[in-house]
């Protein structure tokens, strides 16, 4: 178990900040913060819930983000940026299985 953090600067200037807890390579808790725009805003809670239990692997994270935000509009960031931010935080993980 451990807490992993990353600040990910999106090309264009927005900031996505990840704070997550992992058990092995699975997310047990995650908080996504930053100065981006996501409509409707409450979708962030759904995304965070959907990420719990998932492994920090690009494909797995990418598809969860895409699915959770499929009906949302984003300004200043894309689902890919969120995935990159989560992967960056996950790189602090001792036993990386993300590649």
């Amino acid at each position: 178990m451990g807490v992993y953090k990353a600040d990910y600067k999106v090309p264009g200037g927005k900031m996505v900040r990840i704070q997550m807890e992992l058990n092995g390579d699975r997310i047990t808790n995650i908080r996504i913060t930053g100065d981006f725009f996501l409509h409707p805003e409450e979708a962030i809670f759904e995304l965070e819930r959907a990420l719990v239990g998932k492994r920090v692997r690009e494909g797995e994270i990418g598809s969860v983000v895409e699915k959770a935000l499929s009906k949302c509009q984003m300004v200043g960031i894309s689902p890919m940026d969120l995935r990159s931010a989560i992967m960056k935080a996950g790189r602090g993980h001792k036993n990386p299985t993300s590649s």
């Binding site: 900040r17 981006f36 996501l38």
Partner: peptide, 9 residues
């Protein structure tokens, strides 16, 4: 602060 920001951060 913006909707998605952390007050403490």
């Amino acid at each position: 602060i913006g909707y998605f920001q952390s007050m403490e951060q």
